[in-house]
């Protein structure tokens, strides 16, 4: 689970990519396809929402070539994500898994907090 650098913790991984957390920079690192991007926590949540709001049904049903891909520009990034239908599904799966683990971590931290700070 823990990378060679102690500050980087893998949050979730699928065959298509991974999401890690850097405790030193308070950021999340998304690796997907050939793109690696670092996000601040707020931006990561927003990016997840944007990915989840991609209308898959529209992508499937529309005959227009415009809807064949979804283009997402992450904040403070030089490259954008160009997602086909399968890419979108894979990215959604990766981000959903990461989100689940991050919320689980929040719950665990909340449960442990009284014990951590008790004298």
């Amino acid at each position: 689970m823990i990378d060679t650098c102690i500050n980087i913790v893998e949050v979730f991984r699928t065959v298509h990519g991974s999401v890690s957390q850097c405790d030193k920079t308070n950021s999340y690192i998304l690796e997907f396809g050939d793109i690696t991007n670092s996000f601040r926590a707020t931006d990561f949540i927003d990016f997840t929402k944007r990915v989840n709001s991609i209308d898959l049904v529209k992508m499937i049903l529309s005959s227009s070539s415009v809807t064949d891909v979804a283009v997402l520009m992450p904040p403070y990034a030089e490259r954008c994500f160009v997602l086909t239908l399968t890419d979108t599904l894979n990215l959604k799966e990766l981000l959903s898994g990461a989100k689940f683990n991050l919320h689980l971590n929040s719950i665990i931290c909340e449960c442990l907090r009284p014990h951590l700070y008790s004298i």
Partner: peptide, 14 residues
């Protein structure tokens, strides 16, 4: 692992 979600805000997503 730090709880970055809570560092961001005390508001839940919902």
């Amino acid at each position: 692992m730090k709880d970055l979600l809570r560092l961001r805000t005390s508001l839940s997503e919902e």
